[in-house]
Write a protein that binds this DNA or RNA. Structure first.
Lengths: 339, 339
DNA sequence: TGTTTTTAGTTAATCGATTAAACAAATTAT
DNA sequence: ATAATTTGTTTAATCGATTAACTAAAAACA
């Protein structure tokens, strides 16, 4: 605290001026090998660690990036993705640190306090994970700080963003199910109007159907919310509908998991009677019985990608806004029967 | 960036000296209502946000606390608790912010770089989540920064710590199983030598047995690792042993989940043939079929508690080291049969 | 009324770094 | 040999706050 070893102490101990120590440290001037060594020795001996706050003050950058994660209330969908967040966060932290940056987190409910944090701490960049109300994005713009959005379907093209090819993902899932020999395939979705993601995922389903010349039937699409209970409900609806469906493509693992539970309770066996495939690859999914086949994203890649994009943008703020779309992979487990 | 509104700007605009603005802001001197108002108006009009780095420099505190979370490799046990981490983290961030502090994270693999972060950023306090090698704790001590450990069974009594009453937890689980009428109850554990947690959980199991005058039999204890595959293995061993066991108390949900899978594959029904109870209450556990009865901790409470403890310690660094033990709750679902 | 105390505000040093400008000594060029 | 350049280092201003010490004016006291 009071006895912090400062650059001045090092200078004194090495018999040079503070400026020299600074120059040795960041190599912006030629310093003789002799003094360089004396300074380095002093640093080592005194165990000097520079004060980044002070440096930040004079350099006008903080080497600090902010990560906004949604405030997760227990029970909300976000909750299920908790492990996603922490994995992305870990990956961001790792890659930021490689570049000499530290990460400040803000589990925000998107009130303006986050903006304040950005200003107070002179954040050099911000990575925003998840969705927020419109006004949040409006406010963010004003900061003039480079920002990268992850999984944020914000129509505003002001921001750099990283997302996943949702349509392609459910295309993959549906195609796989069709290749397994199913022809009557239902689609379980969250709310289709509000949610851009859901709409895109529906598109992929349609596309796969098209490719095989299978007619798209609206009565095969079951719309609910993206949660466990909704999965149960939709499976009940499906059974009551008496449609001759042999497989379900769910637009989210949590829906698929609910569906599996609902089917189980009605005495329907997965995959023997009805097959199910999901989307997300939650941690849960591989521990279910049967293991849930699904479409997964490489989560840590997202973090790395975001960091890279952010640093590009920090180095070149006028860079035109970019959108990076990460690939998806089919994960084959045991919830889809091959006919 | 270059056009940051500073305290000086506010002073100029309000027609007072910078010092006055500062005094208005932190109320350490009596200022007339008149100038107070002029200053506040100027602040509002200019949208002034103080620079916390600068403040930190002159105040010698950073209003920053560090949170160390383990580097989670895919597949490791930590991975399963990912959602724990992010929930604790969220809770820490929330309660820290209420007190005007921000949170810097470090997903460390416990190399010395963390220490450096603490010094570089002048962290006011540190919360450490999870277990680390001994040398990590040794190094931490040197910083002289208040530290609170969460779920870290570090024998060194130098640190404040927050943990859970592990013995009591498995006591609860075992007692519940016994009350359901089971008398031949196996215990599935992780490695019992190294891991203090596992030993404590075993103790609780024994205690519940004792209380009912049921003999403790070492052949009822199955030792493996704390992961899914080990759960499957142990269930195989159990079946091969031909012991007349009707229930399993698992020392971790992930073990219980593996066991359920293993039993299922051998055609044994849970809970009809064998009952299973876990410990942790992973997110997963309630989505299984049947839902896994288990012992849960209130995770967000941990974060809140840690923050409170940390701030106490920051205000009074000489405070004797405290250990807080949080309660556990039995969660009844459908994996234990009542006989 | 003159003296002391209180109130309200300013000046200037400080926190721990960076860096432009100045400068002396050593090298090179002419 | 002298001027011009290069090299290595120091001086001092700066970043944006806080705060001890000082001062002037107003209020309280004798």
């Amino acid at each position: 605290m009071s006895n912090r070893i400062t650059l001045k102490d090092v200078a004194q101990s090495a018999g040079v001026s503070p400026a020299t120590v600074s120059y040795v440290l960041n190599g912006k001037k030629t310093i003789s090998d002799d003094t360089k060594k004396r300074v380095m020795d002093a640093i080592e001996q005194l165990e000097y660690v520079p004060d980044l706050n002070a440096r930040s003050l004079s350099m006008r950058d903080s080497k600090l990036i902010g990560v906004v994660v949604p405030q997760t209330e227990p029970g909300s969908r976000l909750m299920f993705q908790n492990n996603f967040y922490s994995e992305i966060l870990g990956s961001i932290e790792y890659h930021a640190r490689l570049r000499g940056y530290h990460v400040i987190i803000s589990a925000t409910d998107a009130n303006e306090s986050y903006l304040t944090l950005a200003m107070e701490r002179n954040l050099d960049g911000i990575i925003v994970i998840g969705m927020y109300p419109d006004e949040f994005y409006q406010q963010m713009k004003k900061t003039n700080i480079p920002i990268v959005l992850i999984d944020s379907y914000c129509d505003d093209h002001y921001y750099h963003s990283i997302r996943v090819d949702d349509a392609y993902g459910s295309y993959l899932a549906t195609k796989y199910v069709l290749e397994c020999g199913h022809t009557d395939v239902a689609f379980f979705a969250g709310q289709l109007k509000e949610n851009g993601v859901m709409k895109k995922r529906l598109t992929g389903y349609q596309q796969a159907l098209n490719e095989r010349n299978i007619e798209f039937r609206t009565e095969y699409v079951f719309e609910g919310k993206i949660d466990y209970d909704s999965g149960i409900e939709l499976s009940d609806k499906l059974l009551k509908s008496k449609l001759n469906v042999t497989a379900i493509v769910a637009a989210a693992d949590i829906l698929a998991i609910g569906a599996m539970k609902g089917l189980y309770e009605q005495g329907i066996k997965v995959p023997d009677d009805i097959s199910v495939i999901g989307f997300d690859d939650l941690e849960i999914s591989k521990y279910l019985t049967p293991g849930l086949s699904t479409v997964k994203q490489q989560i840590s890649q997202k973090g790395e990608c975001a960091v890279e994009m952010l640093f590009n943008s920090m180095q070149n703020p006028s860079l035109s806004k970019q959108e990076q779309i990460l690939p998806l992979y089919l994960v084959e487990r045991n919830s889809v029967r091959k006919i």
